[in-house]
Design a protein around this nucleic acid. Structure first.
Lengths: 206, 206
DNA sequence: TGGGACTTGTTAAATGATTAACAGCGCAAA
DNA sequence: TTTGCGCTGTTAATCATTTAACAAGTCCCA
């Protein structure tokens, strides 16, 4: 299957979560406009995304909730699952561990890294915390392919280098500075300062 | 001045931060390609953004760092500054307070809200925590115009309603569910589950 | 003083994403 | 039956964003 557009992938993740809530409520079919309302987007967009993944609903009945959940799973998830680590176990790192731990079977946080001696050796939500200089070793042992970076700005670039050298294939960067990675490593940057300043600009201008 | 494109606004925030680091290092001029490298984008994009804000550099010398910082400030910041609150003071909320507190003079977190009795009445980094049912009152007293939403999924929709009713003009939603706001309220949604699943998809497909 | 390399500013083309438009099927009601 | 409405699937148009292309000004050096 060929690569889907970024925005479609984002929405698929959200469709699935919304659909799982429906499924829990024993809802068996859903119309494009219902799904659209849950995500606050348009029905066309829903139908188009679903077309792109090659699924078909039933006319006048909508989409079969459980079938669609399964299909999205086949597209988004890796068969064997992927292991994830959090680098920098401050408040943000802990928030992420707490939120993800035990949520997804196919995507699990298996290690944390930090350089604060008080944190090393501890477990948070059963996730062990190692010093950063063991990153390469643990990444290999635990077969980790994604790292979430939540370290202070000053050390982000250096830690990012360590992560890339360890063979990680995807990085999610929450540090407030842009990092540099080779082309074959996926990079998602989420800068909270930027999000806030952007909101402030549009509030001011509205 | 007419409204700038969203992506340009995001980058302006990042330019400014990068430029302030340059300024601290006494660097007085910067070329478009240097600024581009700091953000890992192209020089054309930098020049185009700077054109859009009506600034001009000096040929063969680049842009005057401090002038550009000031101009970006005039565009992004409100004259009097804006007040911000954090709703839900779990790990993520605390991470945000800790990070922003004392950073921006024009954008300051002045209140936190939560319904956990153990948290109410406390201060975290000098930011007082109130119960959610006082939100409307405090928002008016403190003239808060932006709310950062970091509550659990189950209560997000309801709390969002409270926030909108209180007259907030911009919401940044980190809760893992899409919320609904009137057209005149700015909404930025940042879903960490989606970010992670998206990374997993592109790692798998690469 | 003339040529070449460098860098900005701007317009035009290309790419990516959303929205509009509508054909087609199926059910329901007359 | 037939008519009409509701919903899906798809193509075409629009809108947003990035990238390419290049003119023009400046500096340096021969």
């Amino acid at each position: 299957m060929k690569m889907l557009p970024e925005k479609t992938v984002e929405r698929l993740s959200q469709y699935r979560r919304a659909l799982m809530l429906c499924s829990a409520k024993e809802k068996q079919h859903i119309y494009s406009h219902e799904l659209a309302n849950l995500l606050h987007i348009t029905p066309v967009q829903v139908r188009r995304d679903i077309m792109l993944i090659g699924y078909s609903g039933t006319l006048r009945k909508g989409y079969a909730v459980d079938e669609l959940i399964d299909l999205i799973g086949k597209i988004l998830d890796s068969e064997e699952g992927l292991n994830v680590c959090v680098v920098g176990i401050g408040n943000l790192g802990r928030a992420l561990v707490k939120y993800f731990k035990g949520k997804r079977t196919r995507l699990s946080i298996v290690a944390a890294f930090d350089n604060n001696p008080e944190k090393i050796g501890n477990e948070y939500k059963k996730v062990p915390c190692y010093p950063v200089d063991q990153l390469s070793k643990i990444v290999k042992e635990e077969d980790i392919s994604i790292a979430i970076l939540t370290v202070p700005r000053q050390v982000a670039a250096q830690v990012a280098g360590t992560i890339v050298d360890a063979g990680i294939k995807g990085i999610i960067n929450y540090a407030p500075i842009s990092i540099n990675v080779p082309d074959d490593v996926y990079l998602g940057e989420y800068d909270m300062t930027t999000s806030l300043e952007k909101a402030a600009y549009f509030v001011k201008m509205s």
